[in-house]
């Protein structure tokens, strides 16, 4: 569904993408993980026509984004990191304008607007001005809007940033459902638990390059199943163990200093790059 080959992008002297290559298969929920400034949003902006690509090749559903950008855009839906809804328009008007931009006829726009508002549980808010909605409702409306034209690939750029934990979980449930309904999802996040909960496959990006990818369990198991955090005067260290008994045994041997927990994606990222995701 998505194929990136050696993408390069610079902003002046700063290199945002330095030969990024990856593939996402149809129906996958792929989480693109990396710290701020790693190149996640730049990748999404390029794929959606918001930024120019310096070098490399990208195709969506087999359509080259440089050769036929309009055809590629028709296959995509985008939920940006920041709110880009029209606050002065109603919920319904935002969806209607989006439908027009994607060439949907009047009846089709009305039908899909109703369906998608029900899908995101906002049917009762269609006449509300967007500026009166809460952050969580705005984010759900952005997802409904991105789905209006029936994209095959949905880009979600940090979809839960700034939302409280309860709303975050509602968005996660919605994202899971979208993927179960057959839409390929490309999600960027720096929330580790979000990627662990949602993703079928993760990719780590650091300094504009993909440093690792695979199923979350596989990526984590490469380190071990259990981690021990040791807080020493010279700093914090994390050690990895195949079994819990081994980890507990290590702590006992150290005189009880340290704590045991399951290995997470943050550990994997840290061990690969020396940087934290979040």
């Amino acid at each position: 569904m998505l194929r990136l080959e050696n993408l390069e992008k610079s902003f002046g002297p700063s290199r945002a993408l330095a030969g990024l290559s990856l593939e996402v298969g149809p129906g996958e929920l792929f989480a693109f993980l990396g710290p701020n400034g790693a190149g996640k949003t730049t990748t999404i902006r390029i794929l959606n026509g918001l930024s120019r690509l310096d070098r490399g090749r990208a195709s969506i559903g087999g359509v080259d984004i440089a050769a036929d950008p309009l055809a590629a855009k028709r296959l995509c839906g985008l939920v940006a990191q920041h709110n880009n809804l029209d606050g002065d328009l109603t919920v319904w008007e935002n969806l209607d304008i989006h439908g027009r931009l994607y060439g949907l006829g009047r009846r089709e726009r009305a039908r899909r607007s109703r369906e998608h508002l029900e899908y995101v549980e906002m049917a009762d808010r269609s006449a509300s001005l967007v500026k009166t909605l809460s952050g969580g409702l705005k984010r759900r409306l952005m997802i409904a809007r991105a789905l209006m034209h029936g994209p095959r690939l949905l880009f979600l750029d940090e979809p839960t940033v700034g939302l409280d934990p309860a709303i975050r979980r509602r968005i996660w449930a919605l994202v899971k459902r979208i993927c179960q309904d057959g839409v390929t999802v490309f999600l960027t996040t720096h929330y580790i638990e979000e990627a662990e909960f949602l993703a079928g496959r993760v990719g780590f990006i650091n300094e504009g390059r993909l440093v690792a990818s695979g199923r979350p369990r596989e990526v984590m198991d490469a380190l071990g199943q259990w981690a021990v955090d040791v807080f020493a005067p010279d700093g914090h260290r994390t050690l990895f163990f195949a079994g819990r008994e081994e980890a507990v045994g290590f702590i006992q041997a150290q005189g009880g200093a340290g704590s045991v927990r399951r290995v997470n994606l943050e550990d994997a990222f840290l061990s690969l790059t020396g940087r934290r995701v979040s």
Partner: peptide, 14 residues
């Protein structure tokens, strides 16, 4: 400020 222009940039419109 509103970033609404992105909606037009991302849309398949001439």
């Amino acid at each position: 400020y509103l970033h609404v222009f992105e909606e037009f940039q991302a849309a398949p419109i001439p």
